[in-house]
């Protein structure tokens, strides 16, 4: 009985998927008011689902880190910091009458939430420099071409060399971006899309 129930549920999921796909597909292809209304309702439900997913994610995160603290797993102190900070920010938002737009919450945003990720992101320059120094080397297999491409891109975009480099360098840079690079990237995008489609079909219809 349990297995039959599972099978029935899977058929229901497949049916719901096909119905939703049909409505959204028809809405994209033809401007029919009834279909448009149904599509809008589905999309609005998606909004609700996403908001619920966000909440579920927050609770899941807290649960996992609480478990890590409770069981004394490695780096449990970091989990403690995470939960403490989350509760502190949550409390600030709840205490203030204007919620997320209150002065205290604005202070947290301007002085903590903004500079910390920006500082971490700024380290990317040093990471890139180390990676470029290590891999963009003459003599390594394949890296000479990458070195030439990276230097061309970098030098043609430096204001200091503006006017000093020949026009052919700029033309080559634009041709590289527009033709081979774009062809490769679109190929990758197409491949990813097809792969995602196939994975989706496999997940829905594998039984």
């Amino acid at each position: 009985m349990g297995k039959r129930r599972v099978v029935s549920a899977k058929y229901l999921v497949i049916l719901a998927t096909v119905v939703c796909l049909s409505i959204l597909g028809l809405d994209r292809l033809a401007d029919v008011p009834t279909v448009r209304f149904a599509a809008n309702q589905l999309l609005a439900w998606t909004l609700l689902l996403a908001a619920f997913g966000l909440l579920a994610g927050i609770f899941n995160l807290l649960y996992i880190h609480a478990q890590r603290i409770w069981r004394g797993r490695p780096e449990w102190s970091m989990s403690l910091v995470l939960i403490g900070v989350a509760l502190a920010v949550f409390s600030v938002g709840m205490v203030e009458s204007s919620g997320a737009f209150g002065p205290l919450m604005q202070w947290v945003f301007h002085n903590i939430l903004t500079p910390v990720p920006a500082a971490l992101f700024a380290l990317l320059a040093f990471f890139l420099a180390a990676a470029a120094y290590r891999f963009l080397r003459i003599g390594r297999h394949g890296s000479s071409w990458m070195l030439a491409g990276a230097l061309l891109m970098m030098l043609t975009q430096m204001p200091l060399l503006r006017g000093l480099l020949p026009d052919a360098a700029y033309a080559t840079m634009h041709w590289l971006i527009d033709k081979p690079v774009m062809a490769a990237m679109r190929g990758v995008l197409l491949g990813m899309s097809l792969a995602m489609l196939m994975v989706g079909v496999h997940l829905v219809f594998k039984e």
């Binding site: 320059a125 470029a132 120094y133 963009l136 070195l147 230097l151 970098m154 975009q157 200091l160």
Partner: peptide, 14 residues
């Protein structure tokens, strides 16, 4: 100036 430093790192390394 950061661009120059970046280019120098690559060029001097090679």
């Amino acid at each position: 100036w950061g661009h120059i430093g970046f280019a120098l790192i690559i060029l001097l390394g090679n």
